[in-house]
């Protein structure tokens, strides 16, 4: 990593997580990986001097594919152009990245590198209607100790992704009630709305009489100024509890 007065290019390798100690949910789920999610690149200028280009590459796609494989009984990974209508699934999940931020020691005046990633998970039911929309913030921090070059920043990013994985394992069902989609009367799964569709458009299409109310979890703004953009577990649970429809599992 060459920093002084110049720029840095950081490219992440695909991330893997350990096998989690959980019981998978008995759901058949498809995950659609949008192109901008699979090839996410963040460019930034630190203190007006150092230019950074952070290429997350396939790391997010690899993480989500692996994670969902652990979390659900049956998972199909779809490319951006794949048609989900022929699949017999309970739900379709489409992840995206709303924001990526990082800090380096020259900014924070500490020995640490930190990464914040704000993901968004859109969950569609078997009819292709948006069922839940969950923004989640993840945070990772790494020191330089024992690491060289751009490794501390890579490690902070990996820890942020791992943090997101832990949060999804813990709260995906609480925040989206995805388990309630099990064996709902399925018509053909229409191709899900593109990630760029507005929430208002989605809300208009939502058949309110039969679907649980869509839930949003309010988060503090990410970034170094706001401090670690992390929900406390209790707050998150309490917010989720109020909005979970009856019949959804509690973990």
């Amino acid at each position: 990593m060459f920093v002084a007065g110049c720029g840095s290019n950081v490219t992440l390798d695909p991330v893997t997580i350990p096998t989690p100690l959980i019981d998978p949910m008995p759901l058949s789920v498809a995950i659609r990986i949008p192109p901008e999610f699979e090839h996410y690149v963040h460019e930034d200028e630190v203190l007006g001097r150092e230019k950074w280009r952070i290429d997350l590459g396939r790391s997010n796609a690899a993480l989500f594919s692996q994670l969902f494989g652990f979390m659900f009984d049956d998972v199909t990974v779809l490319g951006p152009d794949d048609d989900a209508s022929a699949l017999s699934i309970d739900a379709l999940v489409e992840p995206s990245i709303d924001a990526f931020e990082f800090s380096v020691p020259s900014q924070s005046k500490t020995e640490s590198y930190a990464v914040w990633i704000r993901y968004r998970l859109k969950v569609y039911d078997s009819a292709g209607d948006m069922y839940a929309n969950w923004p989640l913030s993840a945070y990772g921090k790494s020191e330089q100790f024992g690491l060289t070059g751009d490794e501390p920043l890579k490690r902070a990013a990996i820890l942020a992704m791992r943090d997101a994985a832990a949060l999804m394992i813990m709260n995906l069902d609480k925040s989206t009630a995805i388990s309630a989609l099990k064996d709902r009367p399925a018509t053909a799964v229409a191709a899900a709305e593109p990630a760029s569709a507005t929430q208002e458009e989605q809300a208009q299409r939502e058949p309110r009489n039969q679907l649980p109310q869509r839930r949003e979890v309010k988060l503090p703004p990410p970034g170094p100024v706001a401090g670690p953009a992390v929900l406390s577990m209790e707050t998150d649970e309490e917010m989720s509890r109020e909005t979970i429809p009856e019949g959804s599992s509690d973990d």
């Binding site: 997580i17 350990p18 100690l21 959980i22 791992r162 943090d163 994985a165 832990a166 813990m170």
Partner: peptide, 28 residues
């Protein structure tokens, strides 16, 4: 790693009173 994700910075028990529930989780 062996207990993922129950000892991550976000999920690790903050007090001993969280231990009984943690021990009940599958495999822990």
């Amino acid at each position: 790693d062996s207990l993922f994700p129950w000892f991550e910075p976000r999920t690790a028990p903050a007090e001993t009173k969280g231990l009984p529930k943690l021990m009940e989780r599958p495999g822990v």
